[in-house]
Design a protein around this nucleic acid. Structure first.
Length: 422
RNA sequence: GUGAGCAUAGCCGAGUGGACUAAGGCACCUGGUUGUGGCCCAGGAGACCGAGGGUUCGAAUCCCUCUGCUCACCCCA
């Protein structure tokens, strides 16, 4: 057994797997920029309180599931468990309310949660995060939802649909919570133990309980959409109209909720088919009350986060092949130390001409060098042996089985740049 | 935090008490071609069978503890 292994819940993304990540990152950039979003990079760690604000007691989030540490200056920091906190902090810190609203920013990178790892869930995981800050317009919700849609469609994921709900705001939600709790208290004997707890601590969460015995109770439970105030109802119906106008399939999912207080109105997910069943590939919604909780001016905002690890899994399951990464185009083989010097020099010249070129090391046999050329997928092997050295030539061997020829040493770079495919 | 399953070389994986100084495949290295890849053939290297303890004349194989991995629950900002 090795002395060290990657920490629990983390993993290495090996060269072999990078094509998936490159593909996902490329499409993320492309989709976000298509809609006028700009990239924002924030620190991987922040003041721990930034993430703890707005998290109420009773959930495991703040105390158990964050990577919190003190640095040598005794500052309490946390590895970011999500992007939103840092994004809102940056918005406030840099006075972005003076920019044209909304401010649309996206981010890519690792996030951290101290969870028990399981399928598609890691302690270091990668997110594509998209936010629009400074607009309460339902069209902004739709724009964020559309970035997500465009992104997943570009990746080739099939069976896309939206799950959509509205959870109201601080005007109308209290009445809903009351009705929900009253209803659940009538059914305490049949619901699961977790739900008995949830009813008091985080009542909206009873709606996405997976326990069989709770399903009939959920089915008849009060629905958030029936308790929306006039403004929230208008917002929701405008958003639905936008979704319908572009013909994307969506389902009103009354069980789709968020547990924290700063979430308002829109909650959505994008689902894709994977191995025949539907999985959520991103989640998002509106959080009109967060900026104020973090010490900024009231700033309506909407966004989503997509878990890139899960997207990789979905691509694999759907057998969607990412575009291959660039392979070396040329390998320079050699025999003898004089030839080796020439090979090193030629390789340098080829790279200056922007040809992806590899060499072998350790003076291996020509056979071994050509075998490597095959394995690396190069288009052409250039061979410098004693004969070529003496004749100031280079043997040119196409790896697709074409005939081997000789080219004058000083014309090889030109020959290669003309012959090799990008 | 709770529950279940699993743990043999880089990867896959046979072996469930004696003949295991642990099979096979992939990958790797060398040679068959004293200068030529992909196929084939031959050979080589690579494992103290997750760790520790116990039972036994004998343990990869049985028992205990630990660790790790996986899946589900919890949680999911």
């Amino acid at each position: 057994m090795p002395t060290y292994s990657a920490p629990r819940g983390t993993y290495d993304i090996l060269p072999h797997d990078q094509a998936y990540w490159r593909y996902i990152e490329r499409e993320a950039h492309h989709s976000a920029e298509k809609f006028g979003w700009g990239e924002l990079d924030t620190p991987i760690f922040e003041d721990a309180n930034l993430f703890a604000k707005g998290i109420q007691a009773g959930t495991d989030i703040a105390d158990k599931e964050m990577y919190v540490f003190k640095d040598r200056g005794d500052d309490l920091l946390a590895l970011r468990p999500e992007f939103t906190g840092g994004v809102v902090r940056a918005y406030i810190e840099h006075g972005m309310h003076t920019l044209p609203q909304p401010v649309k920013v996206y981010s890519l990178g690792p996030t951290f949660r101290y969870d028990r790892p399981q399928a598609g869930r890691y302690r270091q995981f990668y997110q594509f995060n998209v936010e629009a800050l400074g607009s309460a317009d339902p069209a902004a919700d739709f724009e964020a939802m559309s970035v997500a849609w465009d992104f997943f469609a570009a990746l080739g994921l099939k069976g896309l649909s939206y799950q959509l709900n509205s959870i109201g705001d601080k005007q109308c939600r209290p009445a809903f919570i009351q009705a929900l709790q009253a209803y659940y208290r009538q059914h305490l004997v049949v619901i699961c133990d977790d739900c008995k707890r949830r009813v008091e601590i985080n009542p909206m969460r009873v709606l996405d309980c997976k326990n069989d015995q709770c399903q009939p109770i959920i089915a008849d439970a009060p629905k958030t959409v029936d308790y929306l105030c006039a403004e929230c109802a208008a917002h929701f119906s405008a958003l639905r109209a936008y979704v319908e106008s572009v013909g994307r399939p969506y389902t009103i999912n009354y069980r789709l909720v968020r547990g924290l207080d700063y979430y308002t109105r829109t909650v959505f997910e994008v689902w894709a088919s994977s191995l025949g069943s539907q999985i959520a590939v991103c989640g998002g919604g509106r959080y009109d009350d967060l900026a104020e909780m973090l010490g900024g001016k009231p700033t309506p905002a909407v966004g989503f986060a997509a878990g890139m690890d899960r997207i990789v899994l979905a691509l694999r399951e759907e057998e969607i092949e990412p575009p291959p990464l660039p392979q070396p185009q040329v390998l320079v083989a050699y025999q003898g130390s004089g030839a080796k010097r020439e090979a090193v020099k030629l390789a340098t010249q080829l790279r200056q001409a922007d040809v992806r070129t590899v060499l072998t090391f350790d003076n291996r046999s020509l056979k071994a060098q050509l075998k490597q050329a095959d394995r690396e997928g190069v288009q052409v092997a250039l061979i410098i042996g004693e004969q070529e050295l003496a004749a100031q030539q280079v043997a040119v061997k196409p790896m697709n089985g074409g005939e081997q020829t000789s080219v004058e040493a000083e014309k090889v770079v030109e020959w290669v740049t003309n012959a090799v495919k990008r």
